[in-house]
Design a protein around this nucleic acid. Sequence first.
DNA 1: CCGCATCCTTTTTGATACTG
DNA 2: CAGTATCAAAAAGGATGCGG
Lengths: 131, 131
Amino acid sequence: MNGTQAPARRSRKKQKGNIYTADCPSRSVLDHVTSRWNSLILVMLLEGTHRFSELAHRIGGVSERMLAHSLHALEADGFVLRVVHPTKPPKVEYSLTPLGSDLATHVQVLTAWIEENVSRVLDYRKASAKK
Amino acid sequence: MNGTQAPARRSRKKQKGNIYTADCPSRSVLDHVTSRWNSLILVMLLEGTHRFSELAHRIGGVSERMLAHSLHALEADGFVLRVVHPTKPPKVEYSLTPLGSDLATHVQVLTAWIEENVSRVLDYRKASAKK
DNA sequence: CCGCATCCTTTTTGATACTG
DNA sequence: CAGTATCAAAAAGGATGCGG
């Protein structure tokens, strides 16, 4: 089941994308969601609002440049809300929009699964390396 | 809630990873799962066994090089099983392992969500471009 | 000081051509 | 059919510096 052709339901704005199609916008959304740091950012923001420096500190290995890039991308897609406090020193806070929160929930399931099953993967990697 | 420190449960092989740590293996697993084409491959194989050419044809925009590369990576992590039929012409079939099937289920939830909500993202992108 | 833009290096990806 | 090898382009990543 699960047809490949677009449903072509007319006169309704809410059309479902086909992620297997190269030029479908849903593909670009998937790319953004799965872009290296973005999934980690989404899951971390599920905890609540965080400052730039907090994210930079807690997400191991991310550079400030990449963090800024990723946050902008997530903001442009409407997943993350960026609030600048013009204090001194400056403070920028990031949080999830309702849409982003919904998405992040699903991403978290994935990251949680990986954390749970990472040892299985490691065992397999080791076994096939030996062979 | 959801502590940051590792649980340090001892003397059990099944240790849970911390995906926020740069050198945790779970990070590399996440990278593989979210690598551009891998998520699409996983979801497609959820339908059942597929040949190389079927995957290449149905996943729009993927090159043979990347498809082969991605399939090898998924195979190395124990998510995908590769079976070569020494017929003429040759035939290679790919399917999910139990572990891969479990993972792919969660990835599919994500891709399905994106397909459902892509119009919301597009609306947001359009609105912020206008501003 | 914090956030992030700019320069330059390294890694990933893609187009094309060629083998078993 | 199912890949691999090679080269060129693009993107990711790191170091540094500057505005607020």
